[in-house]
């Protein structure tokens, strides 16, 4: 019985919350909390815009690289095409013009 009397936790006053809050705190808290769905929508829109921008940038990069490579292909030196258009006489004339002796070629080992 004495032990029961000493059980201070049985004092119901102790169960009352000792924590207070600033004035009107809960009404402003509720106001802020009820805006969560709207904020969430805005955040989702922002995320969507960001992801779309990233995707668009990536697509532009890929497309740009493709266009550049294509342009490079069209404008690059194509040795085979040039060689097909040249005749043997053209080559001889070019060698005479540059001063290379035909014997120099005969000494070359071609792999």
């Amino acid at each position: 019985m004495k032990r029961e009397e000493q059980d201070i936790l049985q004092n119901t006053q102790l169960k009352n919350s000792p924590f207070s809050v600033p004035e009107n705190y809960f009404s402003s808290l509720n106001k802020s909390l009820t805006e969560i769905p709207k904020r969430s929508k805005t955040n989702n829109t922002r995320k969507w815009v960001t992801y779309t921008a990233i995707a668009a940038t990536f697509a532009l990069l890929v497309a740009g690289t493709g266009i550049l490579l294509k342009w490079d292909d069209n404008n690059s030196y194509n040795g085979y095409a040039v060689a097909e258009e040249l005749t043997e006489d053209d080559l001889v004339e070019y060698l005479i013009y540059t001063g290379v002796d035909l014997e120099d070629f005969e000494d070359l080992e071609l792999y």
Partner: peptide, 13 residues
Amino acid sequence: DEYFNGDKIQAEL
């Protein structure tokens, strides 16, 4: 905490 309004026993609890 300036918003703690408990007495000594509540603080000890």
